[in-house]
């Protein structure tokens, strides 16, 4: 089987979920697939999904790497808030936009390294180590913004949230670029192999000479950097840093995106592109629910039911059921 063919087969359930979710959206709003050009950029339901899903997709990429090492990063939502706050306050204080952007991304990287040190060097369990920053990080962000919503109007930064490249929303382009960069970083180097080896069997990996600490530091740093990117985009989208709400609970969406993308929470084989598809599927479902016109108090219940259904469809038990039914049918036919 060709490599693309293998990928397609491995990702079939995830693609199916995404396509089903898109079809459902089409049924809810018949103009969902309509694309028009508005002020030189594409406009339509699909664009909304891609735009809104970009932060989750970025977090999902980092989360996929972290989960592959048998870890978890609960701090990404808080890191988003920190990065957005840093960027907004920095440009408002008169810093040039590239500097502000670098500061924001640097803050995310520092957060990631902090997590990495706690986990790889001090040996703290990932869920506990990143919980520290999840809780404290939002406080840090609020310190930076002094508790208010910091509006900014630096055009370059705003372009990250609302601009377009060849008609495509910048947020989507950034997410795709990040996917490409991390695909190269993990699959064109040996990093991907090391990450998977550490996730599957850290002891054996260490004895085989892999720098397990370095690998863990790397993935948490990457997760922090991606979260910061998502944070800047989310802030640019609403033209303000909202420390109270930016990225709130998005760490859970990111984990869900990885799970919908077929990732295993106990580490090992990972697929960045499927995590991205998982994030898009999740956002498509969310968009559908928001637009279906349910009373708002039912949103969460519907969401939970849909996600539970999706995960059931992807479960090995369901695959086995399908296989048996197919066997029975072919048996009856012969």
């Amino acid at each position: 089987m060709s490599r693309a063919g293998r990928w397609l087969r491995a990702g079939l359930p995830q693609l199916a979920v995404l396509i089903l979710a898109l079809i459902a959206n089409g049924l809810i709003a018949p103009n969902f697939f309509t694309l028009t050009v508005q002020d030189g950029r594409l406009f339509g339901g699909l664009v909304d999904v891609v735009n809104r899903g970009a932060p989750t997709a970025l977090l999902g990429l980092g989360m996929a790497l972290v989960i592959a090492t048998r870890g978890i990063d609960l701090s990404v939502g808080a890191v988003m808030a920190i990065a957005g706050a840093v960027a907004a306050v920095a440009v408002n204080d008169g810093l040039a936009w590239p500097l502000a952007l670098a500061l924001a991304l640097g803050a995310g990287l520092a957060c990631g390294l902090w997590n990495g040190v706690l986990i790889a060097v001090l040996g703290i369990q990932p869920i506990v180590a990143t919980l520290i920053l999840m809780v404290a990080g939002r406080g840090v962000a609020q310190l930076i913004t002094a508790g208010r919503i910091v509006t900014f109007d630096e055009p370059h930064l705003l372009w990250l949230g609302g601009g377009s490249v060849l008609g495509l929303p910048v947020a989507a382009v950034v997410a795709l670029t990040a996917l490409a960069v991390f695909l190269v970083a993990t699959r064109r180097t040996a990093l991907g192999l090391f990450i998977e080896a550490v996730g599957v069997n850290p002891r054996a990996s260490r004895l085989a000479g892999i720098d397990t600490r370095g690998v863990l530091l790397c993935v948490y740093a990457a997760s922090g950097l991606l979260a910061a990117t998502a944070g800047v985009i989310a802030a640019a989208d609403i033209r303000a840093a909202d420390a109270n709400n930016a990225g709130l609970w998005l760490e859970l969406d990111a984990i869900l995106a990885v799970v919908i993308g077929g990732g295993l929470l106990y580490g090992g084989r990972f697929s960045l592109s499927l995590a991205l598809i998982g994030a898009l599927a999740l956002q498509t479902i969310k968009t559908g629910i928001l637009r279906a016109g349910f009373p708002p108090e039912f949103n969460l219940i519907v969401m939970a039911a849909v996600v539970a259904g999706v995960l059931c469809l992807q479960s090995p038990a369901f695959a086995e059921l399908v296989r048996r039914m197919r066997l029975r049918r072919s048996g009856a036919g012969s």
Binding site: R188, T189, A190, L191, L193, F194, E196, A197, V200, N201, R203, A204, S205, L207, A208, G209, I210, D211, G268, R269
Partner: peptide
């Protein structure tokens, strides 16, 4: 517990130590 990296392929397991010695930048 200490030897095989179970879910990875036979190839990955064979090249693991050599690759680890070469470093991640030299796949």
């Amino acid at each position: 517990a200490d030897g095989v990296v179970g879910a990875l392929s036979v190839r990955d397991n064979i090249v693991l130590a050599l690759q680890a010695r070469a470093g991640w930048t030299k796949p």
